[in-house]
Design a protein around this nucleic acid. Structure first.
Lengths: 340, 340
DNA sequence: CTGTTAGCGCTTTCAA
DNA sequence: TTGAAAGCGCTAACAG
């Protein structure tokens, strides 16, 4: 049984193709008699419409493109899940595109999505280059980007408040009574995690606590980097009862180094991370951390895209700053040091 | 600037639309002069073809559907990554579909994919029901399924050799000199992991080693289940120097329970898991395990689908049994018990 | 070497 | 209440 078309069922039902189209789309009243015959024919033949042909006329594909660096990275996997789920509910399919963090591939995928006439694209860009995005915007395609300031571009931007997150993490430690808190931070201050350090400083300042660069070692954002940073901390001779790491990976590495040095967590030193990657839940001990909404971010992106498609309101770009959340697990505890 | 069509560029270049089509597709020799004019017009206008319109004629969409229970599950995330990557290389886009392990949603997505006229579908089914698949097969759409026997269905089936994997894991332990090895197994014997237990038995039998059900506690396949099973093992009073857990989650739980009981891993007891989930790499200690190729499985599925599309060879369903691999990390070591 | 034209499957005016 | 017919953007005979 080859693919059936509207024509086949028109013949079978003894009506015009227009009538068939009308009963399928309920876009005009058709007599009960004909309706019944058409429906019967559809049923019998097992017909299903060709959405692409329909798109040719309607100029809408009900498809959105999702470009992420790597869908197997748990972080983007969560975002993708949010996008897919919200997309399904809104009647949109999603084309999965991994850029593998390569600009050329981002570009290639954008061209492809354009050719596929997607109704919108959700984009977690790798670089700061605006060229790929600009193209989409110029063509009037709704775009939502993650973790990147929209700048003068007419796109929705969805981010989290990194500064506030860093502040929140540090506050948690301070409220637990910690006064000497270290901060393991990234190499670059330009990145989003750089903002988290600003949050740390603000909280410390506000609490009248001091911090010195000697208690703020830098790491490469990976587990190894956290290990090295913690060792640096240990070797400095400076005392500290708590650590805020700007990401979970480094926090986990730090815990490893601390334990190797004979320190207990959280009894001897409390550790808090940032991101809430799955590992955080299963580390030893389970890591207290700041989580950012990922599925929600994906869903929000879809919602915005759909709004712009349906309502055609180019009410200008909007920026969404999502709130972080403190996830208390077992790596932090009240300070018990003498000078408390 | 609205969307441009082949017509616009034909006018601009002063040629017929056919000529434009021909230079775009290089499907007929066009004089250098006209070619140049067409290319120039395309460039100037920023034209890109409408792939969907093209599909209308060609009857091919260069799109495949990927249906998985949940793309945020690291296991399926890896598969999806393999599919996307191989798809990109082969010139296919992939539509991401999460069934959320619901039959109705699988069904809904299959209908959608059919209407979108995808060229093939890659499917990690939730249930054993063949109805959804049957539909696709009847319509002549190439299908590849994961982890499910194809049975009499004309679809490619991609699986791993669970029995061999269980055998391999157990052999590793035996070769390390362990004689009293326990096995933490799933509740059901019907599942794929049930096969792994068969592999365990075979290896033990072959080595002339005995195993008793008392050293084979059952768990619910999750971390907690592994913890409980290990405690059961400890309470049994029976001695053992190594454990084969039919999955990583339970292995990690078991290690936790063992450590809580004051045992060291791997000095006091070696532990090997199965699956190589990301957690395995970061557990304490990093878990030795049996890994199954996930991205490769995804890539293979694409390769098969593409073959069937391009060559149109319905050379009957084929079954691919992928090989597992032993990943040696730090949770296993040679037996040092007296009776060695 | 190039242009005209008939569709692909569907929607939607325009007439009846 | 229904049908004929004109496209949507593109490809590929067919005819120069």
């Amino acid at each position: 049984m080859g693919k059936m078309t509207i024509k086949d069922i028109a013949k079978k039902a003894g009506v015009s193709i227009a009538t068939v189209s009308y009963v399928i789309n309920k876009s005009r009243t058709v007599s009960p008699e004909l309706t019944k015959r058409v429906l019967a024919a559809i049923e019998e033949i097992g017909y299903y419409p060709d959405i692409n042909a329909r798109s040719l006329k309607s100029k809408r594909t009900s498809t959105i493109g999702l470009i992420v660096p790597d869908n197997s990275n748990p972080f983007f996997a969560e975002i993708a899940k949010g996008v897919e789920d919200a997309g399904f509910d809104a009647g949109f399919s999603v084309l999965l595109c991994n850029s593998n963090a390569m600009l050329e591939r981002e570009q290639a995928y954008i061209d492809l999505l354009l050719s596929k006439r997607v109704d919108g694209v959700i984009f977690a860009p790798t670089s700061l280059s605006i060229n790929p995005i600009q193209r989409l915007v110029d063509l009037g395609i709704p775009v939502a980007v993650f973790y990147r300031e929209a700048g003068e571009l007419d796109v929705d931007s969805i981010r989290i408040d990194n500064l506030e997150g860093g502040y929140r993490a540090t506050r948690h430690l301070i409220e637990l009574g910690h006064k000497q808190v270290a901060c393991i931070r990234p190499l670059s201050t330009e990145t989003p995690s750089g903002q988290r350090v600003e949050g740390f400083k603000r909280a410390m300042d506000e609490a009248g606590l001091s911090y010195s660069s000697i208690l703020m070692p830098q790491g490469n954002n990976r587990i190894k980097g956290g290990e090295a940073a913690a060792r640096e901390l240990l070797n400095s001779g400076k005392k500290f009862s708590a650590i805020f790491s700007t990401n979970d990976a480094m926090a986990i590495g730090a815990m490893r180094a601390l334990r190797d040095a004979g320190l207990r967590i959280p009894e001897d030193v409390s550790v808090i991370g940032f991101d809430d990657i799955i590992l955080a839940r299963y580390s030893e001990p389970p890591l207290t951390t700041i989580s950012q909404p990922k599925q929600e971010a994906g869903a929000l992106a879809v919602q915005r895209i759909v709004e712009r498609i349906e309502l055609k309101h180019t009410d200008g770009a909007r920026e969404f700053i999502l709130e972080t959340e403190l996830i208390e697990r077992c790596s932090t505890t009240p300070c018990r040091s003498g000078d408390k």
